[in-house]
Design a protein around this nucleic acid. Structure first.
Length: 124
DNA sequence: CATACCGTCCAAT
DNA sequence: ATTGGACGGTATG
């Protein structure tokens, strides 16, 4: 903690993490993305770094980290845990946004937000 | 600088 | 389904 003598309204975050929060914040409501998709969007090859950055999440709930799941469409983790009541809360949050899970997996793949700009050509 | 940890991912079995 | 290695970034010494 180095913000001792200040308003401590700002947490110490690196430039990389800032990008992660920005991208996570851009996820539309009712949709979810994966750590890997986020990593690729940020040109990062490690999805772990994404999860680690989200885990700190000093901007929660402004940053909807609960909208980020694993690439296998599994729920992933939440608040630093991969199982327990935290995950239950994550399910509930997603469900409240219209994202339904079945057997621990995302039921509707259409809810996946791929950061695709859909740019033209070959959309279907 | 070296080591260990991660809300992960992928390949092999 | 389970195991183990990989990769990028952060934290600690």
């Amino acid at each position: 903690m180095r913000d001792l003598g200040g308003h401590m309204t700002e947490c110490k975050v690196t430039d990389f993490q800032r990008r992660v929060y920005q991208a996570t914040k851009a996820i539309p409501k009712g949709k979810v993305t994966t750590y890997q998709l986020l990593a690729r969007h940020l040109h990062c090859r490690s999805s772990q770094a994404i999860g680690q950055a989200l885990k700190h999440n000093p901007f929660a709930p402004r940053v909807p980290c609960h909208r980020v799941i694993a690439s296998s469409l599994t729920i992933g983790g939440f608040q630093g845990k991969i199982t327990g009541s935290c995950i239950t809360r994550k399910f509930r949050l997603l469900k409240a946004e219209g994202v339904v899970f079945g057997a621990g997996r995302l039921a509707d793949i259409g809810r996946l937000y791929t950061y695709s700009t859909v740019t033209s050509s070959l959309q279907l």
